[in-house]
């Protein structure tokens, strides 16, 4: 370092905070860049902190954990026969032996709630992952390549987005037997459009940011730009999107099930359990409607709470930059 070519400057580059004579104010050292906080807070840590401060997010997380435990650990604790129904026991009101009664096939409703919840959570999660992966890749490619390809790709998105999701999903569902995998695929394959648009928009806005220009000026190649700068920065949008996708997919399962296009009997998800809800209410079998309905709403709400909090905390990170 040959910075000593300057004359007369107090040579105290590392003596931050002092080194200047009390009545020589003119000689402030440009080498004093000011203090830096002692605590390191990464962007993610900041996001986590802001997330943790959001009470609703914690509640949401709690609800979600509760239902995961309820659905997966529950059956090991609370044993009920979910293999074969017993028509003699059908439509029993809650009482001893059946805390939530039985359904019209004589299955224990509480046990059914656990099994149905597994399917709902799995489909919601898989569908969200499928939609987000396809959407992110599609959006990223479209945004990164740009030009004519981008135009064509986005028109395709316009076309599919113009076809109402529920209608097309139902039509496809009439043809494919209802398994967890097929339902996840159907829901996921028609839900990637929104994330595709989101990611494309994010990539486009990142592309013109100064730090990307800076990397170009350093001689960075395309690959590095994409993998070191663009994608990591777009990742937060993807993560926020997944939670909302889970919520949407669980709602979609409920709709499909309600209309009779859910899992194939005897498999069941929460939506299927509501397919006879209207008649059940008419007959006064409330236990067949409210426990499952409320569980479903709580899980969707939990996902939405978490999604909102994640979005806010990511925003916080970006705002503070």
């Amino acid at each position: 370092m040959e910075e000593r070519e300057t004359e007369g400057v107090e040579e105290s580059p590392l003596n931050l905070g002092g080194g200047i004579g009390p009545f020589e104010p003119g000689i402030t050292d440009p080498l004093d860049g000011g203090e830096v906080d002692d605590t390191v807070t990464s962007g993610w840590r900041l996001a986590v902190r802001s997330f943790a401060e959001n009470k609703l997010a914690i509640v949401g997380l709690g609800i979600l954990i509760f239902f995961v435990l309820f659905c997966y650990v529950g059956p090991h604790v609370y044993h009920s026969n979910q293999i074969s129904g017993n028509v003699l026991n059908s439509d029993l009101p809650p009482g001893s032996g059946h805390p939530l009664g039985t359904d019209n096939n004589g299955y224990d409703e509480l046990g059914r709630l656990m099994v149905g919840g597994q399917a709902a959570l799995e489909i919601g999660f898989f569908a969200a992952i499928i939609a987000t992966v396809i959407g992110s890749l599609y959006g990223a490619i479209s945004g990164l390549i740009g030009g004519l390809l981008d135009g064509v790709m986005m028109r395709i998105v316009d076309v599919i987005l113009s076809i109402p999701y529920l209608l097309i999903v139902l039509i496809v569902a009439t043809r494919y037997s209802g398994t967890v995998l097929s339902l996840s695929l159907i829901l996921g394959l028609f839900a990637w459009l929104v994330p595709a648009r989101l990611i494309r928009g994010e990539v486009l806005s990142l592309r013109v940011r100064d730090f990307v220009s800076a990397a170009k000026v350093m001689g960075s190649g395309r690959t590095r730009l994409i993998f070191r700068h663009l994608l990591p920065n777009a990742l937060s949008v993807v993560i926020v999107n997944i939670t909302f996708q889970v919520a949407d997919a669980i709602i979609a399962i409920a709709l499909l099930g309600f209309l009779g296009f859910g899992l194939q009997y005897p498999h069941v998800d929460w939506g299927d359990m509501l397919s006879t809800a209207n008649t059940a209410l008419g007959n006064g079998y409330w236990w067949l409607v409210y426990p499952v309905g409320i569980s479903l709403i709580l899980v969707v709400m939990a996902c939405n709470f978490i999604g909102n909090a994640l979005r806010d905390s990511v925003d916080v990170r970006l705002r503070r930059r």
Binding site: A247, I251, A254, L255, F258, G271, L274, A277, N278, L281, G282, W286, V289, G293, L296, I297, V300, M301, N304
Partner: peptide
Amino acid sequence: AFTLYSMPSFFLGLLLIQAFALSLKIFPP
């Protein structure tokens, strides 16, 4: 709004039927 938003639309309908049609019997189901 958040609750409604997190609810399958038919489920609200079920609640309405329960309340206004079955319990209060003000409107037909």
